[in-house]
Amino acid sequence: MITLYDYELSGNCYKLRLLMSFLGIDYKTVPVDFYPGREHKSEWFLKLNPLGQLPVIEDDGLILRDAQAILVYLAARYDPSRSWYPLDNPALLGEVSQWLAFADGITSTSSAARLHDGLFYDFDIDAARAGAHRLFRILDEHLWFGEQQGRNWICSASHPTIADIACFPYIILSEEGGIPRQDYPAIRRWCDRVKRIKGFTVMSGVFPAGPGKIAA
């Protein structure tokens, strides 16, 4: 069975819990005391991941780190529909990879702001917030133009991909870093769509979508 080395309040760990919930995969969790215990910097954990970062998974003897890399692996291996990571569509795969890298940018800005405010990390909070707003503006425009063309998801497909999962957690948690989303209506609508995907699960600080509007 897949083992996930996990911290409940980590958005990067949540990405994997989300995908495994969408795919209906069973897994077991090894809790890591990221805060306040800093167990991700402990000797035993550094043997798993010398970078000292969560998440890590173990599956059939394979040890893999990095949320985006693990999303790729899990979707490629366990999604029989091949929609979350569309292996048969090179153009779409390229888009997915592009937005996975973008998600890393969201982590280094929006997640950093949240770590600063909530867990007292010594980061440049103004730079983190400004960086997140810049990325949110780009994504909001991208999603808005997509909606005009009938596209609901980040990549050019009729279904969500792991790019949506990778971008979602640190956007939905952005207010914990003092980054409001009032100015990003297309992002807010997209967040609601993600929350309505079958199998969606929450983490601490994320609430389920409200009841949907009945079409008039």
Binding site: E8, L9, G118, E175, E176, M203, S204, G205
Partner: peptide
């Protein structure tokens, strides 16, 4: 384990935070 007990309480608090 300590970390399991802490995790439970952190989960609760993380829900209250927003």
């Amino acid at each position: 384990e300590d970390k399991v007990i802490k995790r439970f309480q952190q989960t609760i608090f993380g829900q209250d935070k927003p």
